[in-house]
């Protein structure tokens, strides 16, 4: 018998995904990158479609920079519409787009897949992916699994880990 680490329900021997909550149960690596490359491809084809309709008329995508408050380091979010944020540990199968493990994020309570930032032409938003310690925007805790708008200068906390959002005009 296997106990799912996410929902604590029991699963029969040999199960690979939890049938109750969908979490992957074994530590075999491999799947992760499939989603990302697949996604990038989608973005590309979507771009081509739009360009064909209105070449050059599209507003430029928002540029978003994450500034780690503790160290002042900046991480630029480019090339995708969606970035998952979290940390990595040994044997982990799903790796976040933005890996905070070099910044002692574990001690600060960052989950492996903690939150995701979505960038569109008009807005930037944040969603907490049911993390253990939760996410706040400007010290106000946000509900999980819902999008919340982000503005230039907002400070988000993943657990106790603080990041400032910079959206240059």
């Amino acid at each position: 018998m296997i106990i799912c680490r996410a929902c604590k329900k029991s699963q029969p021997e040999g199960a690979i995904f939890c049938s109750e909550c969908g979490t992957k149960l074994t530590d075999t690596t491999g799947l992760v990158t499939q989603s990302l490359s697949h996604f990038l491809e989608d973005v590309k084809t979507a771009d081509i479609g739009l360009d064909a309709v209105s070449a050059g008329e599209r507003p430029a995508k928002k540029r978003v920079i994450l500034q780690i408050i503790k160290t002042g380091e900046q991480i630029s979010l480019v090339g995708q519409d969606d970035f998952t944020i979290g940390r990595t540990s040994e044997g982990q199968s799903i790796i976040p787009d933005i890996d905070l493990s070099p910044f002692d994020s574990y001690q600060e309570g960052v989950s492996r897949i903690h939150a995701s930032i979505k960038i569109s032409d008009t807005e930037v938003s944040l969603i907490d992916l049911s993390s253990i310690n939760g996410t706040s925007i400007n010290d106000i805790k946000i509900a999980p699994n819902q999008y919340h708008h982000l503005h230039d200068g907002d400070i988000i906390s993943l657990g106790k880990f603080k990041i400032q959002i910079l959206i240059p005009a």
């Binding site: 909550c21 990302l36 996604f39 969606d82 979505k118 992916l129 049911s130 699994n145």
Partner: peptide, 21 residues
């Protein structure tokens, strides 16, 4: 509701944000 929320999370991780929404 819990299952649907879990489903949304997995979809987001896979980059399917429209469907997740």
């Amino acid at each position: 509701v819990e299952r649907l929320e879990n489903l949304a999370t997995h979809l987001l991780i896979q980059g399917q944000s429209e469907l997740a929404r």
